[in-house]
Amino acid sequence: MPLTLEQIRSDVAECLGEDPADIPLDENLVDYGLDSVRVMALLERWRHEHAVQADFADLAERPAIEAWAPLLGVA
């Protein structure tokens, strides 16, 4: 099953204990409490469930859902 923008948002929100509607697509997720440990956990989950090939460094460089989408194979 391919990863979608809404799935990324939902997974990030779950990781942060927030409602997905409260997680913006275009803002820095560090400002919402996302840290490197959580980014790694999300990346491992997506690698396992969706065969994502992205690197941690790429996600950490621009921690926003819109920036992640192309890196995670979301069209």
Rank of each mutant, 00 (worst) to 15 (best):
A54T: 10
N28C: 08
V12I: 13
H48R: 15
F56H: 09
W68N: 07
E49H: 08
Q7T: 14
L71A: 10
S36E: 02
T4V: 02
L43V: 05
I65Y: 01
A69D: 00
H48N: 13
R47Y: 03
H48V: 14
L29R: 03
L29F: 05
A41E: 14
L42T: 06
R62V: 14
W46Q: 07
P2G: 05
L34C: 06
R38K: 15
D11R: 15
D19M: 07
A41M: 11
D19V: 12
M1D: 11
R9F: 02
A75N: 12
E49L: 10
A41R: 13
L16D: 03
E49A: 13
V37A: 15
A64E: 06
R45W: 01
L3N: 11
V74Y: 04
L25N: 09
H48P: 00
V74N: 05
D55V: 02
A60P: 02
R45F: 10
S10W: 10
P63Y: 00
L3H: 09
E44W: 06
G17L: 08
G33Q: 10
V52W: 02
E14K: 11
V30N: 11
H50T: 05
P63I: 10
L71Y: 00
F56I: 10
E27A: 11
A75R: 14
P2V: 11
L16E: 01
A69E: 03
A60Y: 05
V30Y: 12
D35Y: 07
L3T: 08
L34S: 01
A60G: 03
L34P: 01
R38Q: 15
E18G: 00
Q53F: 00
V74W: 06
C15A: 13
H48Y: 09
L43N: 04
W68E: 00
A69N: 04
V39G: 04
C15R: 09
I23G: 05
A75E: 15
L25W: 06
V37E: 06
A54R: 09
V12W: 02
A54Y: 02
G73P: 09
L25D: 11
M40V: 14
D19F: 08
G33K: 09
W46E: 05
L16S: 02
E66H: 07
L16Y: 03
G17H: 10
V74F: 03
H48A: 14
D26A: 14
L3I: 13
G17D: 10
D19S: 14
A69G: 03
E6Y: 11
E44N: 13
D22A: 14
L43M: 05
E6D: 14
L34A: 08
Q7F: 04
P24K: 07
P24G: 09
M40K: 06
E66Y: 01
G73C: 07
R38E: 12
P2C: 03
N28Q: 06
